[in-house]
């Protein structure tokens, strides 16, 4: 279970607070969506969960399965099952996709006390998972994300997610830059990972992703706090009314 308690976050080199007392709980087996206007702190929440440098937690805590993760390095969190699918996946020139996947998969397996995958085992698993995501295996021999289209990058993120078998999936604006076909492939990939052992937090500005990845709960984030929580119908309501009700409201 993910428990975010009264989380206050600011940028390290600026005084302005971004998250101001965010509280949220996502039980295992559930998919929660976070929706909110631009600048509400959605991406900050995603980065803080994954442990990116440059943010300072001034108050509150993040617990994953009862354990505080805020002092952990990103790789330690990944080993504990935290995975962030980036809004803008990075390009890594000179590192082949397969090398990257194998290094990452075996690094987390090692720390989870699982046997590392041998080359044939690894290739078999990658081929299988890549095929499901319509990813051309040849593409994985190329450097990570270099020269990939927006849709290819997002599929590559979901492949990484599938390979690392996380227990907490955070998807940051996974729908941005996707056409309707790619959106379907990516959503199918995410839905395939839904399981009673896994919690998911889907961060999005638009409702359309939630037609494909249907959430158990929807939270509205504005001014650094959760302003409202509801069922999947809340997303549809926001689609018609917009965020005007929230952007004007003082925190």
């Amino acid at each position: 279970m993910l428990e975010i308690k009264n989380l206050h976050v600011k940028l390290e080199d600026e005084d302005k607070a971004i998250l101001k007392g965010l509280t949220l709980t996502v039980p295992k087996g559930e998919v929660h969506a976070i929706m909110g206007p631009n600048g509400s702190g959605k991406s900050t929440l995603a980065y803080v969960l994954a442990g990116r440098e440059g943010y300072e937690i001034t108050d509150g805590d993040i617990l994953w399965n009862g354990e505080s993760i805020i002092e952990m390095e990103p790789d330690e969190r990944a080993a504990k099952g935290v995975f962030l699918a980036f809004q803008y996946p990075m390009e890594i020139p000179g590192v082949a996709g397969l090398t990257f996947l194998r290094t990452a998969a075996n690094a987390v397996r090692k720390r989870r006390d699982m046997a590392e995958l041998s080359t044939p085992e690894f290739l078999k698993v990658v081929k299988e998972k890549a095929a499901k995501l319509n990813i051309d295996f040849e593409m994985l021999k190329r450097p990570v994300n270099v020269g990939f289209s927006g849709g290819e990058k997002k599929r590559s993120e979901i492949l990484q997610m599938a390979m690392l078998e996380p227990s907490l999936c955070v998807l940051d604006e996974t729908d941005s830059g996707l056409d309707i076909d790619a959106l379907k492939v990516v959503s199918d990939g995410v839905n395939a990972l839904r399981s009673p052992d896994r919690a998911m937090l889907v961060i999005t500005h638009y409702q359309r992703l939630l037609n494909h990845i249907v959430p158990d709960k929807v939270h509205v984030l504005a001014h650094g706090r959760i302003q409202r929580t509801g069922g999947k119908e809340l997303a549809l309501e926001l689609e018609t009314s917009g965020y005007a009700d929230y952007t004007g409201k003082a925190a």
């Binding site: 440098e53 990944a78 590192v95 990452a104 690094a107 720390r111 690392l164």
Partner: peptide, 23 residues
């Protein structure tokens, strides 16, 4: 880039080494 690699579970030292070598 280091963050991207470490967020995938790759320890910082290995991530840096991988990025330097790829360069």
């Amino acid at each position: 880039l280091v963050f991207y690699c470490t967020s995938r579970g790759i320890p910082t030292a290995i991530a840096r080494g991988m990025l330097i070598e790829s360069f």
